[in-house]
Computed example of a mutant assay.
Amino acid sequence: MNQTITAAFAEIPVCASVIGPTRVREFAEAAARVGILASIPVGQLPKIVPVLARLGKTVMVNIDSCPGLATDRSGVDFLHEIGASGVVSTRVAPLERARALTMLSMHKVFVTDRSNLNRSVEAVKRSTPDLVELMPAPIIPWMSEEARSALSPFVAAGFVADKSGVIHSLATGALAAASSDSGLWSLTRAELRQGAQ
């Protein structure tokens, strides 16, 4: 497991899903050290990514969702040049390129049924990412132990809307939970332990 990621989630096991440029300030001010930037136009990324990096944030960019950002080699190279920590994608090729540049890679997986799950496991075997973003979180307990192991380490995402959702995600074996609810972006493991009692 990547030591940067392990250290980043050591105290705050929540990954900030930062959807759109208006949410960036909230992430900058939150205790969460890892964030996924999504739906941010390519022209704004060079202004945002370096600032967050200087604040000590691990900045992952969802290359599939940022308007104007190519999902090919040139797009990954651009993210590397502006200082992004890593790339998030449903596609294998950008993740392979990110790894070649020693960037972090997160394979986004949507589980809709068993056949889709099997295809996702095969894709993750090809991409060999540092992390899997596994969605939706409520389906994870229904997955086999073998499937969860094949998709590990993973961040549980989708429908994580409160503290109990984070606790539930961690209980399924997730390294962290991803949420767009900024009220969760500073939850510590100590606070979660209290909530679980």
Rank of each mutant, 00 (worst) to 15 (best):
G35K: 01
E26Y: 05
A98D: 06
S186A: 05
P153Q: 14
S89N: 05
R99W: 11
R189D: 09
K57P: 12
R23F: 10
E145N: 13
P46Q: 09
E122M: 06
K57H: 15
V166C: 02
S17A: 14
G183Q: 11
A10R: 02
I48Q: 06
S149W: 12
V92C: 05
E145K: 14
L175T: 06
L187D: 04
S179K: 01
A98K: 04
G35W: 01
K108F: 13
S85G: 09
P41N: 10
A177H: 08
E133R: 14
F27H: 07
L151E: 02
P129G: 03
W185Q: 06
P41Q: 07
H107I: 03
S65T: 15
L52P: 11
K163F: 03
L131G: 09
M135Q: 06
V111G: 05
N2A: 09
G75R: 01
S179Y: 00
V42D: 00
S115G: 14
E122Q: 11
P136C: 07
G165N: 05
L37W: 11
T188Y: 08
S39V: 14
G173M: 04
V76K: 00
V155R: 05
A28H: 10
A70M: 11
F159H: 06
S179H: 02
V92H: 04
G165Q: 02
S152K: 10
V24W: 12
G56R: 07
G75D: 08
V166K: 01
M103V: 12
S85W: 10
V87M: 00
M103S: 10
A16R: 00
S152V: 00
A70N: 09
R25W: 07
F110P: 09
A32K: 06
T90Y: 08
E11R: 08
P153Y: 15
L192P: 11
L192I: 08
D162C: 04
L104H: 10
V14L: 01
L101S: 08
N2D: 12
A171C: 11
I12N: 04
G165W: 00
D77M: 13
E191R: 15
E146W: 09
Q194S: 15
R148W: 03
V88F: 05
F27Y: 12
V42T: 02
A161H: 02
A84V: 15
S120Y: 01
L69Q: 03
V76F: 04
I40T: 06
D181C: 08
S186M: 02
V160W: 00
G43A: 12
R25K: 13
M1Q: 07
A93E: 14
A16W: 00
S169E: 01
R25S: 15
L131T: 11
F9T: 13
